[in-house]
């Protein structure tokens, strides 16, 4: 009897919960934006950038926003459909891995505007893609590294070998070859967006080989690399956000990427009815990427040469960044 009443209680609770859940009807809202992130929103890198972009939409453009972090590939379709069904006007997926799911779901919900950042999926209708020009940013930071190294050994620490980071590293190596042909670039991949220890190991191994400038591009790998250089004379170049706080005494510059600028740009176009499912490539010229402040170690002459390269990139005078995008 006791057992039976427990089961009965359970049934009653579940039913109540079910009815409560069904009672709430979702009304379609005009200014709603949802975002999917494959990692945590506070990673200090790629995902945090996107999160800050979403917050900009909320605070400056008056959007109601929703966020799902740590999204697994198996859940892409379901989550995209959920948000589309709930009347979100813009759905932003932050990474190349959402391409297939976005293509499918964009077809099913023609009135919803989908945006893929860091990928190329677009359909000339309601699915837009945005790419950062990683190669030019790699080139620009590479120029600084080439001019700052004294040991002529430069380290690159990356996370997962995805196209944007590879393009970044290719551009970086091209710049080093152009500006300091004697310098050697040592590359390391940790294979993980979240493993700080591996990033540190990779950077320590490079320092042991005599590297005196390290550029890191890979979310948590950056934390690890910065931890490895703190307290040494090794210089640090950050990526994604201004990462001065990671290693204040070693940081000489960061390539800052602004998802906020991109989202504001796209949503403004969307609200004006001018967003038509194109592939947008954005970088220094569009203000979607820029250099942070230089560290005090960087002499005036070097600053001027780097800024000249930035200007040349913006003006289209330099176009060969090692073949990447």
């Amino acid at each position: 009897m006791k057992r039976f009443s427990i089961i009965l209680l359970c049934v009653v609770m579940v039913t109540t919960a079910f009815v409560a859940g069904c009672a709430k009807k979702e009304e379609p809202l005009a200014k709603k934006a949802a975002m999917l992130l494959s990692g945590p929103a506070n990673d200090g890198g790629w995902n945090q950038l996107a999160y800050e972009g979403l917050m900009t939409l909320q605070n400056e453009k008056g959007f109601e926003v929703a966020l799902t972090e740590n999204v697994k590939q198996a859940d892409h379709l379901q989550l995209l459909r959920n948000y589309a069904n709930q009347g979100y006007k813009y759905i932003i997926a932050h990474g190349y891995e959402y391409g297939d799911a976005l293509t499918t779901v964009a077809e099913e919900f023609p009135k919803v505007t989908f945006i893929q950042i860091g990928g190329v999926a677009h359909n000339n209708k309601n699915l837009n893609a945005v790419l950062f020009t990683s190669a030019e940013a790699g080139y620009i930071t590479g120029v600084l590294a080439a001019l700052m190294t004294k040991t002529n050994k430069i380290g690159l620490v990356g996370a997962v070998e995805i196209p944007s980071i590879k393009a970044d590293f290719e551009g970086f190596k091209k710049a080093v070859a152009d500006f300091n042909p004697n310098a050697r670039v040592i590359e390391a991949w940790t294979g993980s967006w979240t493993d700080i220890a591996k990033g540190k190991e990779a950077a320590l191994a490079q320092i042991a080989q005599g590297v005196d400038v390290i550029m890191a591009n890979g979310d948590a790998a950056n934390h690890g690399a910065a931890e490895a250089v703190r307290g040494t004379n090794v210089l640090y170049i950050g990526w994604s956000r201004d990462q001065k706080e990671y290693a204040p005494d070693n940081h000489i510059v960061s390539n800052v990427q602004s998802v906020s600028a991109i989202l504001v740009n796209l949503v403004d176009k969307g609200e004006a009815g001018e967003l038509k499912g194109e592939l947008h490539i954005m970088g220094y010229k569009e203000g979607a990427q820029y250099l942070s402040e230089f560290g005090p170690q960087v002499p005036e002459s070097v600053r001027q040469r780097v800024m000249q390269v930035v200007q040349d990139v913006i003006d289209g005078k330099i176009t060969d960044f090692g073949g990447g995008q």
């Binding site: 919960a17 859940g21 709430k24 198996a74 379901q78 459909r81």
Partner: peptide, 28 residues
């Protein structure tokens, strides 16, 4: 919590779309 669990249940078996999603994610 009741509202949250309501969404949980609705999300798992609330309609044909969710029910089939549950089945699909159970296959592997």
């Amino acid at each position: 919590p009741l509202l949250a669990y309501g969404h949980l249940l609705r999300g798992a078996v609330g309609n044909l779309g969710q029910l089939t999603t549950t089945l699909v994610s159970s296959i592997p």
